[in-house]
Design a protein around this nucleic acid. Structure first.
Length: 284
DNA sequence: TCCCAGGCTGCTT
DNA sequence: AAGCAGCATGGG
């Protein structure tokens, strides 16, 4: 039972990973990043060759954190599957080697990305913080740290009024989040078995939720359901794809999806994250 | 003031 | 099938 643990890592850029727009609950305070995973307050710090984690409540088994951070993934094996002659992609990788994908809890991930449409990442972080503070449960925090709350479960949000959600800055997304929470609360839909389906089947299930289209579905498949080939196309990615792979050409969505699958390969989602991150940092 | 943001829905052609 | 306005809210 420990409050602190050290995890040896190779090629893991913790700050870039936590700030790369896949999870929205992490805050940086000097060298330390604090966040909430499930019902645990966690602080993470990158050190040479390892990540140091601290919790508020003693931990017997750290597997939940290893899983969240995907510490057992061999990144070099992933990078080896990328097209080696793709200059744009290789440039993006070299700009931030060590950028990783997390494995998030499906409901929080789905809810977060329902809130994400036509929002900047900082605003999504604000919305998630408001939802947690207002509808989540207090989480134990070490002495002297800001209070934090767990992300509210779908059972809780299913019973919240649309007006209360709009108070959390959800805008037109409020009815989407509420209806999605209700589908899960009634058992009409289920997120826990998505990882057992094929990627296409799981995607079709996600598309049944109101406010969830192809982009958000792919984010959930990639960031929460363990489908590394899922490739989310947002405005930034579309800009990169058009510039590097389809210059001066109109490309239909279905053809684009086929190109992505065949060109980027079995870990296309990782490629997507490198391209997205590179576009963002290059623009500023 | 205008434009854009990790989009989706529903209504037009 | 494909195009497009509308949808809230905040930042540059």
């Amino acid at each position: 039972m420990n409050l602190i643990a050290e995890f040896p890592v190779e090629c893991y850029d913790l700050p870039a990973t936590l700030a790369s727009g896949q999870a929205f609950r992490w805050r940086e305070s000097q060298p330390v990043w604090t966040g909430v995973i499930s019902r645990r307050w966690v602080s993470l710090r990158q050190e040479p060759g390892c990540i140091v984690a601290q919790t508020a409540v003693a931990v017997a088994d750290w597997q939940w954190l290893r899983h969240y951070l995907q510490l057992d993934l061999d990144l070099h094996q992933v990078l080896a599957t990328f097209p080696q002659d793709d200059v744009a992609l290789q440039t993006a990788v070299r700009a931030c080697p060590g950028l990783r994908l997390l494995r998030q809890e499906p409901w929080e991930c789905l809810a977060s990305f329902i809130c994400s449409s036509t929002k900047q990442i900082v605003q999504i972080q604000q919305i998630i913080a408001l939802l947690s503070r207002r509808f989540g449960e207090p989480v134990p925090v070490p002495e002297g740290h800001e209070p934090v709350w767990s992300f509210p479960g779908y059972a809780r949000l299913a019973g919240v009024s649309e007006a209360d959600l709009r108070d959390c800055k959800l805008g037109f997304r409020a009815p989407y989040l509420r209806a999605t929470a209700q589908m899960l609360a009634t058992g009409e839909a289920d997120l826990t078995r998505l990882h057992t389906l094929s990627q296409e089947e799981a995607r079709a299930e996600l598309l049944k939720f109101p406010g969830v289209g192809g982009k958000i579905a792919d984010c959930v498949l990639l960031f929460a359901c363990g489908f590394p080939q899922a490739f989310a196309v947002d405005v930034w990615i579309m800009k990169a794809l058009r510039r590097h792979y389809f210059p001066r050409r109109v490309v239909k969505p279905e053809k684009l999806r086929r190109f992505i699958r065949t060109h980027f390969g079995p870990h296309a989602g990782y490629a997507q994250q490198y391209l997205f991150h590179y576009m963002r940092v290059k623009q500023g």
